[in-house]
Structure formats: structure tokens, C-alpha cells
């Protein structure tokens, strides 16, 4: 059992949790992820790490409620426990040296890029952050990112905060103005794809963190297989970071939609269960 020792709401349906997992907290490296299973009947879902405290033995997670399990997870409170936490899984993010590193996050991805940003900065590199969101209240972790980056640009689709537009608009300007040696993008697939399309003609090495559907997370099942450079790779084992210029994004997007029907049914169950919970105080 892994106790939740801290919870903070960051935005609607988005929370930051700190969870006890001492061994993982001693070993995890930027870019690696964990898999959690909330309870006996639970699904195993992968989550990135937005930070950790090796001394306190905790991991910091950003969870966005999108379906059954994530919604159940954001409803947990301080003092509650998670049955299974396994990790660290996947590989340490590797970015080629030279020039500035641009870190781009969308949704929970903003949390996921922070450890890499800190690491690059510590290595003496100029790090620029870009956060994108639909609207102001969904901009996550701006302060954390500012603490890790020399500069941070915020974009919102509706212009309610920062620059109106997409992360790629901000990235374009940065590329025009300085020597960018590497880009890391973590977030929704369309965002990672757009970033990769933008950097490709400039030959800027671009890593993206692929959120394929996973089960075991150790390379045993192949659920997470993605096509990169025409070859099958397992996102959990070979990734989750891959060369953004080589990823078959269409396949990834379609594979993420495998269980839409079952997910809708699971949400019905969730709604019934949570109605039950509020009805019987």
C-alpha cells in the first residue's frame, strides 16, 4: 500500500498527489514513469512523474481525470492509499547536447517535463519552457517550470492567458531567435506531432513521450507497441521517449482509441458509484 501524503487541486479535474514509494523515489530518473493500480479490481495505468523526494520517499504525480481510473484517483484524499505502484519504468530521457533545450508540456505533460528541465539546467544548459493549454485555468505548474527554466512561455488557445495560440507558435519564435539543440515534448498526441513537424525541417532533435495503452509496463505484452522509423517498438520498454520525427502518430492515435466503447461503459459505472457515494454520506 502506498499512502497519499499530499493532495492539491491544480485545475478542474486535475490534481497533484504525493505518494509514498521510497524505493522508486531513490531510483527514478527524468523521463521514467510508474504504473499504478488503485485497488483489487483496478486497471493498471501509467503515470509520469513530475518530481520526487528521495529523502521523504515520495513521488509527485499530476493526474488528470479522463476516464474511470483517473477520475477515481483524483477523488482520493490525503491519507488514502493506492494498492500497487510499480516503477521506475521506461528509460531516462536523453537529449543531445549543444544549444538550448526547449521543454514543451501540455496537460499532465507539463509536470512530466519538469524533472528533465531541472536536469538539463543543472548540467549548465539554457532551458526554455513552453506550456500550452486551452484556457487560463488549465495552465499547470507554471511556477515550477519557471523555477526550472531560464524562460517560460505560456500559450492558451483562447488567449485568456499568455500568448493566444499554440505551443508551436511560441516554439517557432524561439527557433527563429536562438540556437535550439534539442526539444522535448510531452502531452497530447496532436501537440507532439505538431511540434515534431515544426522542428523536422530545422533538423532539431526532438523527443516525444508516447502515451500508448499499457498493461505490464515491462515489455512482456506488446500492448504498448508503436511504430517508430518503420519498426515495432514497445513504448514501455524502449521508450517512452522516441525520436518525434520517426513516430507513426496516426497509428498511435488510433490505437489509443481501442477501448472507447468499454471506457464509456466504465464511466457509467463510475458515475453510478460516485452517485452512490454522495447519496449515502
Amino acid at each position: 500500500m502506498h499512502k497519499i501524503v499530499y493532495k492539491k487541486e491544480l485545475a478542474p479535474k486535475t490534481v497533484m498527489l504525493k505518494v509514498e514509494a521510497p524505493w522508486i523515489a531513490r531510483k527514478i530518473q527524468p523521463g521514467q514513469f510508474i504504473i499504478v493500480r488503485l485497488d483489487e479490481h483496478g486497471e493498471r495505468i501509467p503515470l509520469s512523474i513530475s518530481g520526487w523526494d528521495a529523502e521523504a520517499g515520495t513521488l509527485r504525480l499530476i493526474v488528470v481525470g479522463v476516464g474511470y481510473t483517473s477520475n477515481k484517483m483524483i477523488a482520493l484524499n490525503e491519507g488514502d492509499s493506492i494498492l500497487d505502484v510499480v516503477g521506475p519504468l521506461g528509460r531516462h530521457t536523453h537529449l543531445p547536447e549543444g544549444g538550448a533545450a526547449v521543454m514543451i508540456g501540455g496537460g499532465y505533460g507539463t509536470g512530466a517535463i519538469i524533472p528533465s528541465a531541472l536536469e538539463q539546467r543543472k548540467a549548465g544548459r539554457r532551458v526554455v519552457g513552453i506550456v500550452g493549454a486551452r484556457t487560463k485555468e488549465l495552465v499547470l505548474l507554471e511556477d515550477d517550470l519557471r523555477a526550472a527554466c531560464a524562460d517560460v512561455f505560456v500559450t492558451t488557445d483562447d488567449g485568456s492567458y499568455g500568448r493566444k495560440g499554440l505551443v508551436t507558435d511560441a516554439l517557432k519564435d524561439i527557433i527563429d531567435n536562438e540556437d535550439v539543440g534539442a526539444v522535448l515534448a510531452v502531452g497530447p498526441v496532436p501537440m507532439m506531432r505538431a511540434v515534431s513537424e515544426l522542428t523536422k525541417p530545422h533538423n532539431i532533435p526532438t523527443m516525444v513521450s508516447l502515451n500508448a495503452i499499457m498493461v505490464d509496463g515491462t515489455g512482456m505484452c506488446g500492448a504498448c507497441r508503436v511504430t517508430v522509423g518503420g519498426k515495432i517498438r514497445f513504448a514501455c520498454y524502449d521508450g517512452p521517449d522516441f525520436d518525434g520525427h520517426l513516430v507513426d502518430y496516426k497509428e498511435l492515435t488510433m490505437r489509443q482509441r481501442t477501448y472507447l466503447k468499454q471506457e464509456a461503459k466504465a464511466m457509467e459505472v463510475f458515475n453510478r458509484e460516485s452517485a452512490g457515494r454522495t447519496a449515502t454520506p
Partner: peptide, 8 residues
């Protein structure tokens, strides 16, 4: 959905 992992 009693156990929540899906299969097709």
C-alpha cells in the same frame, strides 16, 4: 466492468 480492465 466489475473488474475494470477492458478487452476487445
Amino acid at each position: 466492468p466489475e473488474a475494470i480492465t477492458p478487452l476487445h
